[in-house]
Design a protein around this nucleic acid. Sequence first.
DNA 1: CGAGGGGTTGACGTTGTTCAATGAGCGTGG
DNA 2: CCACGCTCATTGAACAACGTCAACCCCTCG
Lengths: 258, 258
Amino acid sequence: MKNGDGAVPAAHANPNHRPNIEKFVANIRRRYEFTPSETLLIQDRITEIASFTPGEFLVREGEKIGYCSLILEGFAARCKETRGGDRQIMELQIPGDFVDLHSYPLEVLDHGICALAHCTIAKLYHKDITMLIEEHPRLARILWFSTMVDASIHREWIMNIGSRSGSARIAHLLCELYCRYEVVGLTQDRRFPFPLNQTQIGECLGFTQVHVNRLLRDLRESKLLSLHDRQAEIHDWDGLCDLADFDSAYLYLEKREA
Amino acid sequence: MKNGDGAVPAAHANPNHRPNIEKFVANIRRRYEFTPSETLLIQDRITEIASFTPGEFLVREGEKIGYCSLILEGFAARCKETRGGDRQIMELQIPGDFVDLHSYPLEVLDHGICALAHCTIAKLYHKDITMLIEEHPRLARILWFSTMVDASIHREWIMNIGSRSGSARIAHLLCELYCRYEVVGLTQDRRFPFPLNQTQIGECLGFTQVHVNRLLRDLRESKLLSLHDRQAEIHDWDGLCDLADFDSAYLYLEKREA
DNA sequence: CGAGGGGTTGACGTTGTTCAATGAGCGTGG
DNA sequence: CCACGCTCATTGAACAACGTCAACCCCTCG
């Protein structure tokens, strides 16, 4: 899974020496003007790349770490463990997500971050973030905004789990991911990467694996969506949005001032 | 029902009269050093006070407003409406909460904020926040932190609704509120203000009013907690925490550096 | 070849919803 | 003052949604 489309207006003359953060930049540029030189500011603060295999934790619940992780490739989840040993997933993270930027103001993370597929991440140390935003207050605003979109996604998940029917919950999860993948250019036709098994889908939505299986069968038989080979395929986008009562406003995909 | 905007032409006609933001400051001082002069910085930017009656909206979903609301007195909720006309509550807000600080980075709010008891709020305009944090970058960090605690609370609610049993969900809700009320000095013994009816409790937890009624009966009969006269009374704190699997870490109540 | 991870299905128990009726408390207008 | 309408809490009975347990399948990997 290499960066297939080297599209970003060359901030990096030499891609071997700077990490490829084009998907993160795509997320920003969807909402703000963002120049190649601003991209460079961030790239130059990244001194470490790390990778994780499925099941490994990027950060553990309660851990105090001095850096934030930007996902370059792969798939991860914010999660907490219940007393009974089960797990609740509270957000899915895809390439381009600045997944634990929350730890910058919070210092200690209330939840863990677990790789669900092989992940490559870039580390940005808190002290470097501090320097960046002191020199470029505009970046502070953009980063703050980015964490507030996470909060908005959390709220929509509360809505999803608390208020929607079983199949609507799954439909909504897939609608969200489709929209987010589209921003970073990882959809083709109506397909996108979806490495979760049925147990993990259940951990997102508060269902057992068996129940997820039955709901997925319903969705398949209604010709709305299907899952194959760690990919999701949406067969009827309008029908899916309608079932899910999906409105992408909470993802804040529109361009803004400033 | 008229809009509460400017309903009260301000306890503010008198410029010497500064709004009482002591509960907000108590929230900050629980986590950060915060001087009286820093308190003044904020007080002097507050030019308007407003009040709202139960059921009125401080902000409507999708509304673009130019200010943030700090709750001085009362009780409010972040909520969204479902297609079916039902409502999901995603966070409860008490005095001292900077309830829609989220709108500062987001500009438009993805959810509404509804008064559940008579509320008095102080308005802080976005342009004034911008000036404040430009001149005092430390405030930016404190405000960002404050919004990240909201995100952490959202995550715990996802956990609550997605993973806990019926009575544990109610127990957890009450444990959280007790801890937050204690920070702002509004508990006495094991009692604190709790103006929600059973329907509204259901809107927080994804239950019907009828089911909430039965769960509350169970909690009462287990001598864990009871609700009277718009107040909650906890009879067995340890037992309640145990049932709820409650750990206050996600509220970030400890003092921090910087 | 067997072990192990994932998906699928059936039978049955539990949790939560729906519909409906009843009562307690409280404010309003006659 | 009482009668009335309103909100809120309470309870029962029928029903739907979801979980639990268990079996079985397919595929991959060693």
